[in-house]
Amino acid sequence: MRGAKHGVRIAAIWIVVTVIVEILIGIIPIPSPVASTQAQGEHQTLYMLFYVAAPIFTFVLVLFAYELVVFRRRRGEPADVPHRPDSNPILLLWAALSFILVLFLAGWGTFTLHEITTANGPRPLHIQVIGQQWFWTFRYPSYGGMETRDLYAPVNTPIQFDVTSLDVVHSFWIYDYDIKEDAVPGVHNVAYFEATKLGNSTPSGHDWVVCNELCGLWHGHMRTQLHVITKTSFASWANTQEAFEKKIGLLKDLPPYSLVYYPTSNANWPSVPQDQSP
């Protein structure tokens, strides 16, 4: 039977191509480096999507290419062939497979989403991220609400970023650790983070916090350094910094720690009463 011969050929080509593509997916690294537990979850999901999508992708392409080559219209042949009725069992199989696949991926994605939007421990270290044109600053409520220009974070420690903005919408992005959260004025957004690698050990060699939302003249330069350090180094740095800010008088000049700020100090700032805060 000629049909069966073509089916076997297509299946053979499809299997070979699929195996090659699956191996390539396994070999080619997907950016960015996996340096946090959140990044692990995201990467696993990405790889799962690629592995599942690859056979479908190759099947469509192989079938298309095979038909182009083998079933192309030759000189003297009619332009169209008689219509063949749909095969119900094949349609049913296609619908059932698609249903199972989509359900599986939806379940997997939902689980990952839940995992990366939940704190890794019962008492995460809170670090507030404040976006402003065109600068990031960070406040540490566990250390007297001190504020810093660079972001310091201890490794292997569950962290909760409380993200907000003092002016327009910014987006807090740590590329090397796969963390991203919008910084919106008057809104308290949350991102969870647990670094599994020390800073500068990631392949790109340097870790930056950048802005990922077009925010004005210096958006492209709105970046600051991230230092993921050991727990003991962090404790020592934080205590020294808090003592310094207390001694010099900065701590008392800073506004009381709050999840959102409505700076009324500038005449242009729309004044919003504190009790309307979310």
């Binding site: 044109q133 600068f135 002016d167 003249l217 700032w269």
Partner: peptide
């Protein structure tokens, strides 16, 4: 840049700041 929102616009970062 100057970090004080001393320009124009809703958030003070327009005009001379931008």
């Amino acid at each position: 840049q100057c970090i004080v929102p001393c320009g124009s616009g809703l958030y003070g970062n327009g005009g001379p700041m931008s």
